[in-house]
Every structure is written in C-alpha cells, then in structure tokens.
C-alpha cells in the first residue's frame, strides 16, 4: 500500500516527473539561449514561471465553457503522468506488463486530443485554427512515430518497454540496428511536442498561441506543465526503445548513463528547433506521408527480415 503510493506520488510518479519536466524546460531554454548567443534563464526560472502563472487571474472569454476548459488540462496532465509511470527510469520499472508500449502511446495521444478540444471550445479564431491544425498535425506525425516505435518492439519480440530494454542489454542498443527509425522517432516526437520546427498549431506569428490563446492563470500553468512532462516522458520512452543500457551493474551507473542519454536527446531536440524553419501544414503533411511513412515501412520490413 505505502509502496504503491510512493511509486505514484514520488518516484517515478508525480514529484519526480514534475521535477524532470521543469529541469527539461530549463535545459532546453538554456541551450536555445546559448545557440542564440544569449545567457539564458536561471535554474529556477521554469518553477518561478509556473508559480507566477498560478497566482495570475484566471480569465475565460464569454461563451467558452468553464468546466471543459478546467478539465482538459487536468485530463492531459493525468494522461502523461500515467504514461510516465510505465516507462523504466534508469532501468527501474515498478509497473510493467506485456503491451504497456501500446498503453503509453495511447495515453500520450490524449493531450493532443485535449488540445484540439481546448481550441474548439474557446471562441477565438486563433484557437479554432490552432486546434484544427493540431489535429491535422496529429495525422501527419503519429503514423511515422508508431512505425518507428514498432521497430524495437518487433526486434525484441515484445510490446513491453521493460522487455525491450532487457533485450537491448543482450543485443546492444537498437539505434545501431535502426538509425533511420530513431530519426523518424525524433521527427515524430518533435511533432508530438509541438516544438519548433513543427510548432505549427501554436505558431506565434500566425495563430498567436493556437489553442491556448484564451487560456490564462492556473489552467495555462497546467497546460505548460503537461507539455513539459509530455516532453520528458517522450524522451524517456525514446531512450528506452533505442539506446538502452547495460542492466544489473549498479543503479548509480545506470542513472549516470540514463542522464547522459537524456541530455543527448534534449540537445538533438533543441538543435533541430534552432536550425530548421517552421514548416507549413501542407508541407508537413506531404513530408509525413510521402517521405516519413514510406521510409518507416521500409525500415520495418528491414527489421522483420533481419529478425527472421
């Protein structure tokens, strides 16, 4: 009983994920600032921003439904937190079962749908456009992302993230077998997190802040927290599926390797958001369906043949 609560609320649950999410935001902002020849924020800035947002007045436009607007960020936050519970952190997995990869992918899709609904229930034109775009973008990145995720699963013969991790300890990191799959997964993750260059649903110069334009105060804080935790959960998942680590030596060495891998993925995400311009939504659709999906299928066929 007590152990279960500890897992849920402290590690690898709520407290740990909130901490990692805020740490991710700081590292990301610091890296972006360094790429732009700036100093960047202090380490406590993401937390300070969060506290500030919670203390702000919470406004909603006339005509928007209050309880829907409240419940959407909470549902998405709950979904990503739950998804985070099933992902091994430095090889530690309290709740693991066959097929949890599919549950994780499903749970990670919920924030996107909530984001869409948030856009549609707000009354502003920017929100509606942002919401419609987020759904369009979902159809473009989700299939390549799933194709990329199914590569490691097929190679290890299991749909459990913990099992995939275990088989990587024997076979070696899967990134060596499927570098293309890793690139696809990165592209898909960027799309899922709505980060530059695929921040089309919240492109500032076009639709102001997309679905979140009319949100403020605590609700916006929950949305920001959701985005941060979604990012960190996505990065953890990517590492477990593609990098892996030698298991069973010492938890400290595992933690060290894991942190290094997390930083590497954050660096890749930040760098790609700096060097690519934002794509148009039609360009993203054609990139997703004409290039990423065929490449993903070829990669998958390759994996299947190799497995045989």
């Amino acid at each position: 009983m007590f152990e279960g609560l500890f897992y849920l609320f402290v590690f690898p649950g709520l407290a740990f994920q909130v901490f990692c999410g805020l740490a991710f935001e700081w590292v990301d902002r610091k890296l972006l600032a360094r790429f732009q020849r700036r100093v960047g924020p202090q380490w406590y800035q993401p937390l300070a921003d969060l506290i500030k947002l919670f203390s702000k007045e919470d406004l909603l436009p006339t005509g928007a439904s209050g309880w829907v607007a409240t419940i959407l960020p909470l549902i998405s936050l709950a979904a990503v937190l739950t998804a985070g519970l099933y992902i091994p952190v430095a090889g530690f997995t309290p709740f693991s079962f066959e097929g949890d990869l599919i549950v994780i992918v499903f749970l990670m899709g919920i924030p996107t749908l909530a984001y869409y609904l948030a856009g549609m229930t707000s009354v502003g034109i920017y929100s509606i456009l942002g919401g419609a775009r987020s759904l369009l973008q979902y159809f473009s990145y989700e299939v390549p992302l799933l194709l990329a995720f199914s590569g490691p699963a097929i190679l290890s013969g299991s749909w459990s993230v913990a099992e995939i991790l275990k088989s990587q300890a024997e076979l070696g990191p899967f990134i060596l077998f499927q570098p293309v799959g890793f690139c696809l997964a990165i592209a898909g993750l960027i799309g899922k997190l709505k980060r530059d260059p695929l921040d089309i649903p919240k492109a500032k110069s076009e639709v102001v802040a997309g679905s979140l334009t009319e949100f403020s105060g605590g609700k916006l804080a929950f949305w920001h927290l959701t985005m941060d935790i979604q990012a960190i959960v996505g990065i953890f998942l990517l590492i477990n599926l593609f990098f892996g680590m030698p298991l069973g030596i010492s938890p400290w060495i595992n933690t060290l390797i894991f942190s290094g891998e997390v930083l590497l993925v954050i660096f890749i995400l930040s760098a790609s958001s700096s060097i690519f311009a934002r794509l148009r939504i039609d360009q993203l659709a054609s990139l997703g369906w004409r290039i990423l999906v065929p490449v993903g299928i070829i990669q998958l066929l390759f994996v299947i043949l190799m497995g045989v």
């Binding site: 972006l32 790429f35 732009q36 020849r37 700036r38 530059d196 260059p197 921040d199 492109a203 110069s205 700096s274 060097i275 690519f276 311009a277 934002r278």
Partner: peptide, 8 residues
Amino acid sequence: IGLDMVFM
C-alpha cells in the same frame, strides 16, 4: 518563419 536562431 520560426528561425529564432537566425533572428538573434
């Protein structure tokens, strides 16, 4: 067009 690095 979302290239903040070039802007800076």
